[in-house]
Design a protein around this nucleic acid. Structure first.
Lengths: 248, 248
DNA sequence: CGGACTGTTGATCGGTATCAATGCTCGTGG
DNA sequence: CCACGAGCATTGATACCGATCAACAGTCCG
């Protein structure tokens, strides 16, 4: 019998980690990640990765695919908190707070690195660089949430759409899920609406108007940015200069 | 001349740290915090602690007072992202991301522990417990932001007010800034409105109605919760069981 | 006393929600 | 092959929440 671990993507040759946008670790730290990684998980589109109030023993780094974090008040009132892409850590709150107050669901089929929650504390002791990296991820997520809260709290529907499209495009672009102003968008109008705090009907009307005004197109699961400048002006979006990111 | 450091509150006897809601560190870790702490800062009400896009060399832990994190789109469109109370870390994003995309302003006079941003990485190496604690703070902030985003994105004005009042009461209660359903509220209706993504006029009307309905009162900078059960039902708020918190 | 800030209230407008109906695409099973 | 249903997108009619503009009251403070 071959060891199933042999079939894993090993961290030294991780295709995500090697991308230029990620800061490269010291050799010892990568070695520790390899030990920390206990498996790989592949799931179909629409799979629940983590569920509110349920304490999974695992946390994950996305290798492939899109997911979204979300939270419900009552049946039918859902807020999408953020989207997650390759390189992003899933289950961060769980790993340090020992609580899970939101769910994570896949939008596409996904491939995930699996880590053991119970070993997070050991990781902080064994590798300060990995601990720092976890804090880095948390701070980055907070920064994105700040942006979303500003978006939902202060902008009109059209500006919200403009902001979110640019935000997602730039993130997807950074990891190769978008280029030439074309974004591979595996979500539908309902997802968009739930992320923006508006109804699907209003999201649709807003999109129709923006499409008519040649700001963007959205066909066949692909969003094309046709007038980036106008979208930036509507939403006062500013691309953040892309320094090196961290990854676990 | 006496060493000014002699007049600092020393971390071993820190009145905040000693509170029961905080997890106690090992002796060595507290010793390290003492070294990490390079000063104390006292500021008047309304002072700017950190400013968007400006890289302060410092980060802070609040010893006394209230502050708020906020972010602007254009003049007059401000979102209050969250409030900060004693024990909370200020400048976390700055410390690990090396970026500052929001401002922090004091609501009351404040006393702050001062740390050097440049020493954060050393802290991770020297004390895994402190590194973990920083990650913990980041995750907790993210969790609160999740709640606020859900609030602003999915609830009506009245439910937003209900949620925020309960949220702030419970946080203030945990560190002794509230008790007997009375919350010492150093903010005004404009702050509330900016945190909830509504106008001050509408915040006022909503509050009037809630006061008329005997849900709460707000006089002399004090909010009194008169019908917690009703507020919880309106907003579907759930108090989170208060496990031990971490502090740096 | 006067000015600044905050809170309050009215009138009106506009953006979004809600309810409802229809069309479209796609996968599935008869 | 077509029928059917599920899920998603689209559009219309209407209601309502919250924004906007404006005026004024109350309080505090120099």
């Amino acid at each position: 019998m071959s060891n199933p671990k042999d079939t894993f993507i090993d961290c030294e040759n991780c295709p995500i980690r090697k991308r230029r946008i990620f800061r490269q670790f010291e050799k010892d730290d990568v070695t520790y990640v390899s030990k920390f990684k206990t498996g790989e998980l592949s799931v179909e589109a629409g799979a629940a990765i983590l569920i509110e109030d349920q304490k999974s023993p695992h946390l994950y780094t996305i290798l492939e695919g899109w997911a979204y974090r979300h939270k419900q008040i009552v049946e039918g009132k859902r807020q999408i908190l953020n989207f997650a892409l390759p390189g992003d850590l899933i289950g961060l709150q769980l790993s340090v707070l020992n609580e899970m107050e939101h769910s994570v669901t896949g939008l596409t089929g996904m491939k995930l690195c699996v880590f053991e929650r119970s070993e997070v504390w050991d990781m902080f002791k064994a590798s300060p660089a990995l601990g720092f990296s976890l804090a880095w991820q948390a701070a980055r997520e907070e920064q994105m949430l700040d942006g979303h809260l500003l978006n939902v709290g202060q902008r009109t529907a059209q500006a919200r759409v403009a902001y979110l499209v640019l935000h997602l495009y730039d993130r997807a672009d950074a990891i190769g899920y978008a280029c030439n102003n074309a974004l591979d968008a595996p979500f539908n109008q309902q997802h968009l609406a739930d992320a923006l705090g508006i109804t699907n009907v209003h999201a649709n009307r807003t999109l129709r108007k923006m499409i008519k005004n040649k700001l963007l197109t959205w066909q066949d699961k692909t969003i094309v940015i046709r007038d980036r400048e106008a979208l930036e002006e509507i939403s006062h979006y500013e691309r953040d200069e892309d320094g090196k990111r961290m990854i676990i």
